[in-house]
């Protein structure tokens, strides 16, 4: 971080960066997190559950704070809190219309209360001087090989479950009524997906920090779904975009002394804006072609 200067000798730059084991670990962890977050995030965007995703991602912060205070493993705190919050959200949304006023209020209250708990844990634990900002905004320094292995195993588990429930979940997300009529367990899938989302955010929060997991989940998926409506293609595009933004962010954070989260979100948001611009341009072009071929009176 700021220890090297950027030159246009790209190969040399890359070799220098790659010669540090912690950087190699950062790239490996970043790749895992990006792929898992993108795959889960694709369903989040499809199901319009961004608020729930944001809530689960910030809940990683009180989990980590409690783990620090009580002295147990950080991963346990992350996973425990995120999965518990996912179950709480699933319980609170029972019998509500999705996206209705009652549900969004309930999500907001869960989020605010758990964050307040995180603040309390932090206040009780006096030794945490630099802690909160690292927990919230993440740090890619000092990721050990053991952590990379843990991340990879958790990632494989999440992707495996997603592969199993993927098809019915897609059906239930696109048309819940028809899916329910065809015997797809819509409610069970919705709970399973929230828990999966909790596990994925817990995994991702360990490297990007609680606040920025959300960016990795939403931005690549939102970009891909603007570009194409075909499920398979846009899922693939989401993973590629998330991966590219994370690695580019890591490279940038190596050469400039600003936080990783800033670079990752900026790159991903720039891609999002470009995709929207491209779509606006193409619809404008299509309209012009259409108005040129159809007589003016008919339009």
């Amino acid at each position: 971080m700021g220890s090297a200067s950027f030159s246009w000798n790209l190969v040399g730059d890359f070799q220098q960066m790659w010669s540090y084991p912690f950087m190699v670990n950062a790239f490996r962890a970043g790749a895992t997190v990006a792929v898992v977050a993108a795959a889960v995030g694709w369903f989040v965007v499809l199901r319009r559950q961004t608020f729930a995703a944001h809530t689960l991602s910030v809940v990683a912060f009180p989990g980590a704070a409690l783990a620090t205070l009580a002295g147990f493993a950080l991963s346990l705190g992350y996973f425990g809190f995120c999965v518990a919050a996912a179950l709480a959200l699933a319980l609170l949304r029972r019998g509500r219309e999705p996206g209705g006023s009652g549900e969004s209020a309930a999500i907001g209250i869960v989020q605010a209360f758990l964050l307040a708990c995180g603040y309390l844990f932090m206040a009780l634990y006096k030794g945490l001087l630099e802690g909160p900002q690292t927990l919230l905004f993440g740090s890619f320094l000092g990721i050990t090989t053991g952590q990379v292995t843990t991340l990879a195993m958790a990632g494989v588990a999440v992707l495996g479950v997603l592969a199993v429930i993927g098809r019915p979940l897609l059906f239930a997300s696109v048309d819940p009524q028809v899916a329910a009529a065809r015997g797809v367990p819509v409610r069970g899938l919705s709970v399973a997906f929230l828990v999966l989302l909790g596990a994925a955010t817990a995994e991702a929060a360990q490297i990007t920090g609680a606040l920025l997991v959300f960016a990795l989940m939403v931005l690549p998926a939102a970009t891909a779904q603007v570009l194409t409506a075909r499920p398979g293609l846009s899922l693939l595009l989401t993973v590629v975009l998330g991966f590219a933004a994370t690695w580019a962010g890591l490279v940038a954070a190596w050469f400039w002394p600003y936080p990783l989260g800033f670079f990752v979100t900026t790159i991903a948001f720039a891609l999002f804006l470009l995709a929207h611009g491209a779509r606006l341009l193409s619809t404008a072009l299509a309209n012009r072609i259409a108005s040129a071929t159809i007589p003016a009176g008919a339009a």
């Binding site: 959300f214 939102a222 600003y258 936080p259 989260g261 800033f262 670079f263 990752v264």
Partner: peptide
Amino acid sequence: DDVVIGSAFAWILGLGSF
């Protein structure tokens, strides 16, 4: 739209950390 709001404020958070 929720997705547009989410995308915008994910970036704003990144800017905040900057």
